[in-house]
Simulated assay, not measured.
Amino acid sequence: MLWPLLLLLAWVAVGTACTRLCLASARAGADPTVVRSDLTLYEAAFLSGGPARVAELTLVAMARQRRLLLAHTGWATVVDPDGRDDMERSVIGAIGPRGQSRIAPVRQSAAAAESVRRLADRLVAAGLAVPEGTRTTIAGAVRQVRGAALAVAALGTVALLTPTLVSGESRALIALWFALPLILALGCLAIARVEVHPYSRWASPAGQRLLAALARYAEGDDDRTYLTSVAVRGVRAAGEPGVRAAFEHR
């Protein structure tokens, strides 16, 4: 009989995928001792878009204060060489002693700076960010469970279409056996959607809740709400077409 072997393969696929998803959700999940109720702009930027978003926010903030010029041609020019915090000093250092550089390498260098790594470590310790080793795990595990569900359906179809079923075996019974691992896979996906959706690469569920609260106030023209919008939504939220063009230029 072929169908028991196919059923075994289905259970292995679903069991492996669901176990991975459960472990990933537990690791990214949540620290119940989180007591933070607000985020700094740098923290919001990291939780929304990672190190690159922090670098972008720093560049936009400095340009907003006229301490840095962002040309639509993709160049950044230093106006005030005195950084007010570690992030700004990282950006100025990435631009270099000539005071002018392309934006793309500046963003890449600033995103890899020690100040950003320290920020990430603080957010992980606070239970707001996903640890580095598990940042892509939840989304990957969800995809694996979806693939396992499709594999179960395919294996079940093959089993039902196999012409060598021995007499007395009911196709309905075989379909029921294959329905069990399929129900398990779909149930895991439903639980994951409720518990850890959206499947963020950077923010833990606790961090996502703070971001959601912050996003409601990211509308307006004053500096704080403008930069909050950039931190949460990225450079595409910048109101000036020239700023967006500066980052989009290749």
Rank of each mutant, 00 (worst) to 15 (best):
residue 6 L to G: 04
residue 14 V to S: 03
residue 16 T to H: 08
residue 19 T to Q: 10
residue 24 A to Y: 01
residue 30 A to H: 03
residue 31 D to P: 01
residue 33 T to W: 04
residue 43 E to R: 00
residue 47 L to R: 07
residue 52 A to P: 01
residue 55 A to Y: 10
residue 56 E to D: 15
residue 58 T to A: 15
residue 59 L to A: 06
residue 67 R to H: 08
residue 68 L to A: 07
residue 75 W to M: 15
residue 76 A to D: 05
residue 77 T to A: 14
residue 79 V to A: 12
residue 80 D to F: 08
residue 83 G to I: 13
residue 93 G to C: 03
residue 98 R to D: 14
residue 102 R to M: 09
residue 103 I to K: 08
residue 104 A to S: 13
residue 104 A to P: 00
residue 105 P to Q: 05
residue 105 P to A: 10
residue 106 V to L: 08
residue 111 A to W: 04
residue 111 A to Q: 07
residue 118 R to C: 03
residue 130 V to F: 04
residue 130 V to A: 12
residue 131 P to A: 11
residue 131 P to K: 05
residue 132 E to A: 15
residue 139 A to W: 01
residue 141 A to D: 07
residue 145 V to A: 00
residue 149 A to V: 04
residue 159 A to R: 00
residue 164 T to N: 06
residue 165 L to A: 09
residue 165 L to T: 04
residue 172 A to H: 05
residue 172 A to M: 05
residue 177 W to D: 02
residue 178 F to L: 03
residue 179 A to F: 00
residue 184 L to Q: 12
residue 184 L to W: 02
residue 184 L to F: 02
residue 185 A to S: 03
residue 188 C to S: 15
residue 188 C to R: 04
residue 189 L to A: 06
residue 192 A to P: 00
residue 198 P to S: 06
residue 198 P to Y: 05
residue 199 Y to H: 11
residue 199 Y to G: 02
residue 203 A to E: 09
residue 205 P to T: 07
residue 207 G to W: 04
residue 208 Q to A: 07
residue 211 L to K: 06
residue 212 A to V: 06
residue 216 R to A: 15
residue 216 R to D: 14
residue 218 A to Y: 01
residue 219 E to M: 03
residue 221 D to H: 10
residue 222 D to G: 07
residue 224 R to D: 15
residue 229 S to M: 08
residue 231 A to M: 12
residue 231 A to T: 09
residue 231 A to I: 12
residue 236 R to E: 15
residue 237 A to P: 09
residue 237 A to F: 01
residue 240 E to W: 00
residue 240 E to C: 10
residue 242 G to D: 14
residue 244 R to F: 00
residue 247 F to Q: 11
